[in-house]
Design a protein around this nucleic acid. Structure first.
Length: 379
RNA sequence: UCCCAAGUAGCUCAGUUGGUUAGAGCAUCUGACUGUUAAUCAGAGGGCCGGGGGUUCAAGUCCCUCCUUGGGAG
């Protein structure tokens, strides 16, 4: 008998935070968890071996990008995305809903689905909810996301309602396609998450979350946040949504965020996160460290023989100096991207791992306050 | 010694028949990045236009002279 998909180990006494375990056929995932983003079948500039060394349990892939290149036929012939990219842990694939949003100049929406032109060669494609389920079945991801529409910010309420209604129709069709026409292809289970929308309107957020719960998914994500709104507004939307979502299912806040965003969301009951920030910003010279956010290209690190971050347990963090990493980044050396990316992911994993430990030991609130004070006020 | 070419930002170079506040790329410095079209993008600082003299309402641009560098001749 397979283990429960999600089990809560401890609820925080002072806050809505919780510590739990998600179990897929590829890995046990302690929550809260951060999932590094590997859009095109690679977490950019980091070996899978390095991710394993850092105890990464789950990464993201992207339906839209992998469908356009290399294409599902190729990944299917390799036996699925895990084998294709040699990743032994779990994989969650985003549906392409975010690309429909971020590449909006290239697409048109209808009730049937999203019609779009490939950014690679201009070829025409259509993503229906059913097709997106099928693509993720061919990819073989452990967690399949529904196709949704991510609204822009700011957004008029009538547009938010219209968008929500479209996402709802898509969610119903997605669930049906997943349950009725989507037997797993590679011998392990797949789970499907619904995605809450409703822009920045609390009543819409509640209403739509309830509709998703009524449809019934393995877990629920919160989408359409961190799209330019003030952080406080995002926190409010997380709170009202989590009031409706069932306590015994994981909650996934999509695309978030900064270390501070993540701790605030954990406090409000979020279990899963993904974000390009640690990897993208690493490649652009920004490091997240236990002593604050720094830009490694700054002249003040020219002579620094300090280690990147001795507090963080990774090869990159504990074996190379700031001055050396600065040199690599300014010289456009590939190892600079690798070390910076590895460190940032190690930091994000350390952050959620420590949050979990503190929830288990009952010290989450005080630790969070102290950490953020230190992080935001570097000596 | 003579002939030719070239001297403009730290570097490599644009700069129209003389006409706004002399530009670019790179470098330097700083910032941004939130379900990745991103090893990307944005901003800033930086000039006795080789020196001097002249022509002109006006010179990086035309003339003279000197200096420096490169090439060629002897």
């Amino acid at each position: 008998m397979a283990k429960d998909f999600f089990k809560i180990e401890k609820n925080d006494t002072n806050t809505k935070a919780r510590a739990g375990v998600i179990t897929t056929d590829h890995s046990e995932i302690p929550t809260p968890i951060f999932m590094p983003v590997g859009t095109q079948g690679t977490v950019k500039a980091i070996y899978p071996r390095t991710l394993e060394e850092m105890d990464t349990r789950i990464i993201l892939g992207n339906t839209y990008h992998l469908y356009l290149r290399p294409g599902t036929d190729i990944i299917n012939k390799f036996g699925g995305l895990h084998k294709f990219m040699n990743w032994k842990g779990s994989i969650l694939t985003d549906s392409g809903g975010y690309q429909v949003f971020s590449l909006k100049d290239l697409r048109k929406l209808s009730e049937e689905g999203a019609h779009f032109a490939s950014y690679l060669d201009g070829s025409k494609h259509m993503f229906s909810p059913e097709k997106v389920v099928e693509i993720q079945r061919l990819l073989g991801s452990d967690v399949v996301m529904v196709l949704d529409e991510c609204t822009e910010y700011p957004c008029e309420k009538k547009d938010a309602i219209k968008s929500m209604q479209l996402s709802e129709k898509w969610a119903i069709r997605s669930r049906k396609a997943f349950l009725e026409d989507s037997e797993p292809l590679y011998g392990f289970r797949q789970f499907q998450f619904g995605i809450g929308q409703g822009s920045m309107f609390a009543d819409l957020r509640r209403e739509y979350a309830q509709k998703l719960v009524d449809i019934g998914f393995d877990a629920y994500a919160i989408g359409g946040l961190s799209v330019g709104e003030p952080a406080e507004l995002m926190y409010d939307m997380i709170e009202v949504t989590n009031e409706v979502l069932p306590l015994d299912k994981p909650r996934y806040l999509m695309g978030v965020g900064t270390p501070e965003n993540i701790l605030e969301a954990i406090e409000r009951g979020i279990d899963m996160f993904d974000c390009v920030m640690p990897t993208r910003n690493a490649r652009n010279g920004q490091l997240f460290t236990s002593y604050g956010k720094i830009n490694i290209r700054n002249a003040k690190y020219k002579y620094s023989q300090e280690l990147i971050d001795p507090m963080i347990d990774s090869y990159a963090s504990q074996n190379f100096t700031l001055g050396y990493l600065r040199h690599l980044m300014l010289s456009d050396e590939i190892m600079g991207l690798m070390l910076a990316s590895e460190h940032n992911i190690a930091f994000y994993l350390w952050l959620v791992r420590t949050a979990r430990e503190k929830i288990l030991s009952g010290e989450f609130s005080s630790w969070k306050r102290e950490f953020l004070f230190r992080y935001n006020n570097p000596e």
